[in-house]
Structure formats: structure tokens, C-alpha cells
């Protein structure tokens, strides 16, 4: 058996719900560190940045599922919903940290930032795009909507991921490497789909 098939066989034995349990551990640990004063001088920024970065990693992971299956033969399809939902919950956490801890519920300033600050606007847009995806990430929604419509809706993952990466680039001072890495990864994963789509048309 090829190594990839062996991994596939092994993964078949792992239930998808374990991902939700595993996914809950890092934020819980992070919050514990922040609350106990172990996250440096600015625990609020620490929480916010880390949750945002993890959310981007999960977005990259969810976009990698299809290319990995197509080009490597690794089958992670059964985990895709869990990865996507975790990405949503991490973005939600990131948003709540911003509203509650960073902005301290100063609604006038929060709303002004959403409207006036392009990096906040685009981050908000990405978050709102994920909302219908999270709500319809269940079997009943797929049945009710029909596979085609459901799939079309879930293509929102692509602009949402791009919005997340641009949001990150737009908020940093100078030009650090990480935000560009995320954008490059996401663009690469989207380009892989484009190639397949054009080949299918030919």
C-alpha cells in the first residue's frame, strides 16, 4: 500500500468530531494564558492576533482539502466541515475579542472603524461571508438547498479567505513576511482550482 493510502486508511478510523475537541483546546489555553498574565504586556493584542492568525491557518487548511485529494491523493474530505466550522468559530472569537476587549464596547468607535477603516471593513466583510456558510454547514441544509445551490453558496469561502489575508496585510506597519505568506498560500490554492476548471472546460 502506498504511504498516502495507508494514511487514508488510518484517517478513516478517526471520527470527525475529534477535530472539534482538538480545535477547542488552543483558544482555551490561549485565554488561560492571557487571563493569568502570561501573554506579555498586551494580552488583548496577543489574543486578538493569535486568534486571527489561527483562523487564517484554518482557512488555508480548508482550501487545501480539495487540492490535496486531487494532486496528492490524500483524502481529508470528511474533516472539511469541521475545519471550516472551526475557522468560523476562530474568526468569531477574533471578532468578539476586538469588540469586547480591544474596543471595550465603544460602539460609536466600533461602527466608525467598520465604516471608515478599510482593513476593518474588509475583515468584517469576510466575517459576514462566513456566516451563511457556518449556518448551512449541516446535512439538513444540503438536503434542503440541493447540492448544486449549496456548493455555489459555499464558493463564498474563496472571497472570505482572500478578505482575511488582505485584512491582515492592511493592518500591519511596514512589510513583515507573515501576512504576505498567507495571501500567497491562499492565491496558490485558488489558482490550483482555476487550472482544473479551465482543463475541465477544454
Amino acid at each position: 500500500m502506498a504511504p498516502v493510502q495507508r494514511i487514508n486508511a488510518w484517517l478513516r478510523a478517526v471520527p470527525a468530531w475529534t477535530l472539534y475537541v482538538a480545535g477547542a483546546i488552543p483558544p482555551a489555553w490561549l485565554f488561560f494564558l492571557a487571563a493569568s498574565g502570561r501573554l506579555g504586556a498586551d494580552p488583548v493584542k496577543g489574543l486578538e492576533r493569535q486568534m486571527g492568525e489561527w483562523a487564517l491557518m484554518l482557512m488555508v487548511a480548508v482550501l487545501a482539502v480539495t487540492p490535496l485529494r486531487r494532486f496528492v491523493g490524500l483524502n481529508l474530505l470528511k474533516f472539511r466541515r469541521a475545519i471550516g466550522l472551526l475557522a468560523f468559530f476562530y474568526v468569531l472569537g477574533h471578532f468578539l475579542i476586538w469588540v469586547l476587549l480591544d474596543m471595550g464596547l465603544l460602539w460609536s468607535q466600533i461602527l466608525a472603524d467598520i465604516v471608515k477603516r478599510p482593513y476593518v471593513t474588509i475583515g468584517m466583510a469576510g466575517f459576514l461571508m462566513l456566516l451563511p456558510l457556518a449556518i448551512t454547514s449541516n446535512n439538513r441544509s444540503i438536503r434542503r438547498m440541493g447540492a448544486q445551490r449549496w456548493q455555489r453558496l459555499h464558493k463564498l469561502t474563496y472571497p472570505a479567505a482572500l478578505a482575511g489575508a488582505v485584512h491582515y496585510i492592511w493592518l500591519v506597519k511596514s512589510w513583515p513576511l507573515e501576512p504576505f505568506l498567507y495571501l500567497a498560500l491562499i492565491l496558490m490554492l485558488l489558482a490550483l482550482r482555476l487550472r482544473v476548471a479551465t482543463r475541465a472546460m477544454a
Partner: peptide
């Protein structure tokens, strides 16, 4: 141009110190 300067977060006052 990219963020407001209307308020600030004083550091060192804990997670819930606000602005």
C-alpha cells in the same frame, strides 16, 4: 489613515481594562 487615534488602551491593567 488606517486607524483611529481617538482612544487608547493603557497596558498593564489587565484583560478587561478597555480604553
Amino acid at each position: 489613515p488606517r486607524w483611529s487615534q481617538a482612544s487608547e488602551r493603557p497596558l498593564g491593567a489587565g484583560l478587561f481594562a478597555g480604553r
